[in-house]
């Protein structure tokens, strides 16, 4: 392995890691918001909207991110809607992640038992208070592991955006391979870069899971 080449490439990887992280943060945040809203719509069976949410979730989960990105970047351009690659990437991640996050939140909401809801009602809470103080905290505690797994999944999925010419980690690695044929070096650095990004997140999530465990359903 050419270590000189590798150390010389590190600044490129740092720059690309910033792009990957940037996409992941915005992608995950918007997925959480979309997922949260969709899950509540589904849980409270809000008319018409819940059908739309159902269609969205099936569409999003059963099509690959790559195809979604191509549609946003090339497909919409043909229709006259030209979006920047960066915008497309975040839209694509949000579109994909929203459904996964929604299902995770939904599972948490469904896990709140009937007796908890009835207890909340029997002390005179309104529907809103019941949701705010009983249902959401308990649902969140159940949903955290799945939400965390989805966040990691989305960060890894960002590697797809190199396909629409965004300079993320994957893009840089492919570039270096293409230009210098340093395949092994470029890929080792790529693996290391993702590990460095993901390991702290995994550890942080394990910590959070432990913190919320006592709030879980049942005793």
């Amino acid at each position: 392995m050419d270590f000189n080449f590798m150390s010389a490439s590190i600044p490129l990887y740092i720059k690309a890691a910033k792009m990957t992280l940037d996409l992941a943060v915005w992608g995950i945040l918007s997925s959480l918001i979309i997922g949260f809203i969709c899950a509540l719509i589904g849980y409270y069976k809000i008319k018409i909207l819940d059908k739309i949410v159902r269609i969205y979730i099936e569409l999003s989960r059963n099509t690959p991110l790559l195809i979604q990105l191509f549609f946003l970047y090339y497909g919409l351009a043909k229709l006259g809607i030209k979006l920047e690659a960066y915008t497309c990437a975040i839209l694509g991640l949000a579109f994909l992640g929203g459904s996964y996050m929604s299902e995770a939140f939904r599972a948490g909401l469904e896990a709140v038992s009937k007796i908890q809801i009835e207890s909340g009602l029997s002390i005179g809470l309104t529907r809103w208070q019941l949701t705010r103080y009983i249902i959401l905290p308990q649902a969140f505690a159940v949903a955290v592991p799945a939400l965390g797994a989805n966040a990691i999944f989305l960060l890894k999925e960002t590697s797809v955006v190199s396909a629409i010419a965004l300079a993320d980690l994957m893009f840089v690695a492919k570039d270096l391979i293409g230009m210098y044929y340093k395949t092994t070096e470029a890929l080792v650095l790529l693996v290391l870069a993702y590990l460095i990004l993901l390991l702290p997140i995994s550890i942080f999530l394990t910590y959070i899971e432990r913190r919320v465990r006592h709030a879980g359903v049942g005793n």
Binding site: I115, Q116, E118, S119, G120, S122, Y133, I134, P137, Q138, A141, H214, A215, G216, V217, G218, N219
Partner: peptide, 14 residues
């Protein structure tokens, strides 16, 4: 105004 206590332990665990 109507207090109710159930069969299963219904305290809020969180």
């Amino acid at each position: 105004k109507i207090g109710m206590v159930f069969q299963s332990y219904d305290l809020f665990p969180h």
